[in-house]
Amino acid sequence: MRPHKLFASLLGLSITLSSPLCAQSKSSWRAATTGELTAALPARAPVERERIETEMRTASGIIDTHGRLIAGVVLITAGYSAEGKYSHYLLVQAPISFENVALSPGSYVIGWTRKEDSLSVAFYDAATGVKRGTASAHHLEIGSRVESFRLWPPADHTFLQIGRFAIPYTLQE
């Protein structure tokens, strides 16, 4: 085989072999099943000095091929000191960023305040209550379904949805 034909054949082969690898990084995350979410998320989330009940039917998350989960659930804060400050519990087993808020593996709580046409979403360390940062959730298009909490898999969308608002995320490998 001539050198230029050999080069062209090898180039074609390398593109063919690398294409699934590129696609795999995006599709290596999928929606977590109810069983996976139930096994990982607590029925009572440890938040500062309290153990706050969670609403498991609102649980949502993503899981990768290595079993690393990023998931959250609504907190039932009525009667707890967290009432009005936190609304969701977030378990992170792989690094993720929401706008400029980088979260390493750990447990977090989320609180939000309504702005004119967005939500200001604050992330806190669940154990200490220390604020990790704030991101803006923007209004989704009209007609989109309202979700209490939904972390969409990258193959569908790359955002965390709270109500009719969404915060883009980036997975850190």
Score class of each variant (00 low, 15 high):
residue 166 A to V: 06
residue 62 I to M: 08
residue 173 E to T: 09
residue 141 E to T: 13
residue 69 L to R: 05
residue 106 G to F: 14
residue 170 T to M: 07
residue 49 R to Y: 11
residue 36 E to K: 01
residue 74 V to F: 14
residue 45 A to W: 05
residue 118 S to G: 14
residue 128 T to G: 09
residue 46 P to C: 07
residue 97 S to I: 12
residue 125 D to H: 04
residue 94 A to D: 08
residue 165 F to K: 04
residue 152 W to I: 03
residue 129 G to V: 10
residue 44 R to S: 09
residue 37 L to G: 02
residue 105 P to R: 07
residue 164 R to T: 07
residue 57 R to T: 10
residue 82 A to D: 00
residue 169 Y to I: 13
residue 55 E to W: 13
residue 34 T to G: 02
residue 96 I to V: 14
residue 160 L to D: 07
residue 17 L to V: 11
residue 147 E to Y: 15
residue 70 I to V: 07
residue 14 S to E: 05
residue 58 T to R: 08
residue 117 D to T: 14
residue 165 F to I: 01
residue 143 G to I: 07
residue 165 F to A: 04
residue 118 S to R: 15
residue 70 I to D: 01
residue 79 G to L: 00
residue 155 A to T: 15
residue 62 I to H: 05
residue 81 S to W: 01
residue 35 G to E: 00
residue 171 L to H: 06
residue 122 A to R: 14
residue 104 S to Q: 04
residue 153 P to N: 11
residue 71 A to D: 00
residue 66 H to F: 11
residue 112 W to Y: 08
residue 37 L to K: 02
residue 10 L to G: 08
residue 103 L to P: 03
residue 154 P to N: 10
residue 32 A to S: 10
residue 8 A to G: 09
residue 170 T to I: 13
residue 76 I to W: 00
residue 92 V to Q: 09
residue 106 G to L: 14
residue 88 H to V: 01
residue 88 H to C: 07
residue 130 V to G: 10
residue 160 L to R: 08
residue 34 T to V: 12
residue 143 G to F: 09
residue 72 G to C: 05
residue 41 L to M: 10
residue 1 M to T: 03
residue 148 S to L: 09
residue 123 F to A: 12
residue 38 T to G: 00
residue 173 E to Y: 11
residue 19 S to N: 02
residue 43 A to N: 01
residue 64 D to A: 10
residue 168 P to W: 06
residue 149 F to M: 03
residue 131 K to D: 03
residue 57 R to P: 07
residue 98 F to K: 06
residue 3 P to N: 06
residue 20 P to H: 05
residue 74 V to Y: 13
residue 69 L to D: 02
residue 77 T to A: 02
residue 68 R to D: 01
residue 18 S to L: 14
residue 16 T to C: 12
residue 156 D to H: 10
residue 146 V to Q: 10
residue 141 E to D: 10
residue 106 G to I: 09
residue 48 E to A: 12
residue 168 P to N: 12
residue 116 E to K: 15
residue 127 A to Y: 01
residue 58 T to N: 04
residue 107 S to K: 11
residue 2 R to T: 12
residue 25 S to M: 14
residue 109 V to F: 06
residue 23 A to H: 11
residue 60 S to L: 08
residue 159 F to Q: 06
residue 4 H to Q: 07
residue 43 A to H: 04
residue 147 E to N: 10
residue 121 V to C: 01
residue 8 A to L: 15
residue 167 I to D: 05
residue 59 A to Q: 06
residue 88 H to Y: 11
residue 44 R to I: 04
residue 119 L to S: 03
residue 61 G to P: 08
residue 5 K to G: 02
residue 166 A to S: 07
residue 38 T to Q: 00
residue 65 T to H: 13
residue 19 S to H: 02
residue 140 L to F: 07
residue 68 R to V: 04
residue 86 Y to C: 00
residue 160 L to V: 08
residue 63 I to Y: 05
residue 27 S to M: 12
residue 160 L to Q: 06
residue 31 A to N: 03
residue 106 G to T: 08
residue 37 L to Y: 03
residue 134 T to V: 13
residue 15 I to T: 11
residue 93 Q to W: 05
residue 145 R to N: 09
residue 163 G to P: 13
residue 28 S to Q: 15
residue 115 K to V: 15
residue 22 C to G: 12
residue 58 T to M: 08
